[in-house]
Computed example of a mutant assay.
Amino acid sequence: MFKIIVTAIVLAIAVSIFWNISKLKPETTLVEFTAPFVFGRFYIPEDNPYTNESVALGRRLFYDSKLSGNNDISCATCHKQEQAFTDGLPKAVGASGKPLSFNSMSLVNLMWGPRHFFWNGRVATLEQQALMPIAHIDEMDQDMDELMDELQADKTYQQMYAMAYGNISPENTAKALANFQRSLISANSKYDQYLRGEINLTEQEEVGRKLFMAHPDTKVSLRGGNCIDCHSQFLTSGFATGFDGFSNNGLDDDNNLADGLYEVTQDESHKGLFKVPSLRNIAVTAPYMHDGRFSTLQQVLEHYNSGIKMSKTLSPLIIEADNLEKLDNQTVSLHLTDEEMAAIIAFLHTLTDESFLTNKAFSNPFVAEAEDD
């Protein structure tokens, strides 16, 4: 009888330990990171603690081709670190081999800015965003149940999920991927160093910075590039309030206007509005715009200077912006000089953060493991 009691106690303890491990919650504090205070307040969901364990799990998942049905494609296929987590293509190409609808967006400073993700704002959280490409037939084309089976069979993932969230599930997979993406913070560009008082910009870069920050006003002889009206000063992304981070920037006229945000809201005033992207590391994220139509920053500046197409939802901030006295609202042009456009481009190059593009914490963990073996 004594042996039976002891055996029962041992079994009870073992079951308790197993249960606690399977339900383990992360014990570490918030992952340490630094970002300029001028970025403002950041947002992390209460039900997804931002921990070292969750970020490490998300990083591994981000680079793992298991997440695709053919085991050839990972998140990193369309989001490469050296290109600020873009892919260099006009439109992303996934498992089907067909060009997708949109250009791959840079993944940077995602804890700030608009609370709507993808070019047309179709999801409200990074957690919701994380799983959509995995299941999409043209992107990663992975069956979620099959993915869970593959992860369950992997001892490394068993341990990492247990430490981060307690168990392997689609929900926790989305949470881990979201937290890794939150860790992708770029805050050490030449511009950041300038803001911290560590360096000075060149004369041309300083001219470009001032033009970037100014809305032109002929009444006071203030010349400007009108950039800051849509790209917030320090983050250089769209504004976070409501749909303020979306804009129709004059790519097409009414007859050719893509749906954009209208596809989500069904509000006619939102037709042709797309998410304003961050300009952080913009020099390495070509091609540009939601459909990748511009190959160079020079083409982008020429568009804003003289290529704007009129439409019903064109941003008033773009219509009003002109460095010459405006005679009507039917012709839209900034009337920047070639030298001013070159200066703005020089300033945009100061937004390149080499430490972000090479940070080992954001790199492929499978490569690091292979090097250690």
Rank of each mutant, 00 (worst) to 15 (best):
K3L: 11
I5A: 14
I5M: 09
A8K: 09
L11W: 06
L11P: 07
V15M: 10
V15L: 15
L30I: 14
T34Q: 14
E46M: 10
T51P: 00
A56P: 06
G58D: 00
R59Q: 07
K66E: 15
S68K: 05
S68E: 00
N70A: 07
N70C: 05
S74H: 05
H79M: 04
K80E: 07
T86C: 04
D87W: 03
A95E: 04
K98A: 13
K98E: 15
P99A: 08
P99Y: 02
V108L: 01
R115N: 13
F117G: 01
W119H: 08
G121L: 10
V123E: 00
A124Q: 15
Q128H: 12
A130Y: 00
M132V: 14
H136M: 10
I137G: 12
I137E: 13
M140A: 04
M144I: 14
E150C: 11
T156L: 13
T156P: 13
Q158W: 06
Y161K: 08
M163G: 12
A164C: 01
A164D: 03
N167I: 10
S169W: 03
N172C: 05
A174N: 01
K175W: 00
Q181A: 08
S186N: 04
S189R: 03
Y194G: 08
N200A: 15
K210H: 10
P216F: 03
K219C: 10
L222H: 06
R223V: 08
G225L: 01
N226M: 02
C230G: 00
Q233D: 10
F239V: 09
A240W: 09
A240Y: 09
A240E: 11
F243L: 12
F246H: 07
N249R: 14
D254Y: 06
D254A: 05
E263F: 11
E263N: 13
V264W: 08
L273A: 12
A283S: 10
T285D: 01
F294A: 07
S295K: 11
L301K: 06
S306A: 13
S311Q: 02
P316F: 06
I319N: 02
E325T: 13
K326V: 05
D328L: 04
T337P: 00
D338I: 15
M341Y: 03
F347S: 01
T350D: 02
L351T: 01
V367M: 12
